[in-house]
Amino acid sequence: MLGNENEQRPTFLLVDGMALLFRAFYGTAVTGQFMINSKGVPTNAVQGFLKHMLTATNHFNPSHVAVCWDMGSHTFRNELFDGYKANRSDAPVEMIPQFDLAKEAVQAFDIPNIGLAGFEADDCIGTIAKVSAKDSRVSILTGDQDMLQLLDEHISVVLLKKGFGNYDVHNPDSFYEWKGIKPRQMIDLKALMGDTADNYPGVKGIGEKTALKLLMEYESIEGILENLSSLTKGQRTKIEAELEMLHLSRKLAEIKCDVPISCPLDDAYFQYDDEKVRYMLETHEFRSVLRML
């Protein structure tokens, strides 16, 4: 019965715009292939982003699509912790004109661009995914494993692998088989082990292996703290020394799913005007994408 219900639901692909754009940029930038057009504008990130997005729409055939973006680097997480993402350098100069260009390209496909100042794309994706999952099957296209905390019965996460069209598709069952914990426990996992990419430490000296073992045994940070006396002396000492950072790291790790934005399903219906898209691609000389149409 559930299978039939799933078949009848619309399929909504939520695209993590920044994850795809940066992935595409660094995939070609290392060899200096910025694909500068006749106007002097680099297009490597946007072309790679569009190829990732269109390969996925061809592969998964969603009925609805939306793209979520970060809107500036400062978010509520920086208010909580000064060091949040402080290790990241400014975007390369070749990347800067491509942020607006990517949104313009998405708009040409009549796909909504979504973002809200003060929040990350992850928070927008989490909010829209949770609301949309009531009526549709949601897939999140990203390269970011943080999104795995959002998995549930009607939300899957499509992780990009190397190249184009190679994916690891996860649902709660496959995630449990892989990590041995439930998706929501991913938040506590990151709180314990920290995140070098986002620059918060978690509990110094506790890596993924120990964090997973503790969560398998005690389920949550609360469960671990209630059973401190059962931990090894080393584990107990490390956790007690970093209690404040542990709780803060959990706040930083959790994707907010109550951001004041919305994306009604009707707005994201995936159907574009071929002529309008070709005009945009030709104007900006997106030759590698034109070949895909």
Rank of each mutant, 00 (worst) to 15 (best):
N199E: 03
N199R: 04
N199G: 07
N199W: 06
N199Y: 10
N199P: 03
N199D: 09
N199H: 14
Y200H: 09
P201D: 08
P201Y: 03
P201Q: 10
P201A: 06
G202K: 01
G202H: 03
G202T: 01
V203M: 01
V203I: 13
V203Q: 01
V203D: 00
K204F: 06
K204S: 12
G205Q: 09
G205S: 10
G205M: 01
G205I: 00
G205K: 02
G205T: 03
I206L: 14
I206S: 01
I206K: 01
I206M: 06
I206R: 02
G207R: 11
G207E: 06
G207K: 15
G207P: 15
G207L: 15
E208T: 09
E208M: 12
E208P: 09
E208H: 02
E208W: 00
K209W: 05
K209H: 02
K209Q: 07
K209V: 15
T210C: 04
T210Q: 09
T210V: 12
T210W: 08
T210E: 05
T210A: 07
T210D: 04
T210H: 10
A211Q: 10
A211F: 05
A211V: 07
A211K: 13
A211R: 13
L212A: 08
L212M: 08
L212E: 02
L212C: 07
L212Y: 05
K213H: 07
K213M: 08
K213I: 03
L214S: 04
L214Q: 09
L215F: 02
L215M: 03
E217S: 12
E217G: 01
Y218D: 07
Y218F: 14
Y218H: 15
E219Y: 12
E219W: 08
E219F: 14
S220D: 06
S220P: 13
S220W: 11
I221M: 10
I221C: 12
I221F: 13
I221A: 13
E222R: 04
E222W: 00
G223Q: 08
G223R: 05
G223P: 15
G223D: 08
I224T: 11
I224A: 11
I224E: 08
I224N: 05
L225M: 15
L225V: 11
L225C: 11
L225F: 14
L225R: 12
L225K: 15
E226Q: 15
E226N: 14
N227Y: 06
N227W: 07
N227R: 12
N227H: 15
N227M: 12
L228Q: 12
L228W: 05
L228D: 05
S229Q: 13
S230L: 03
S230R: 05
S230M: 01
S230N: 04
S230K: 13
S230I: 00
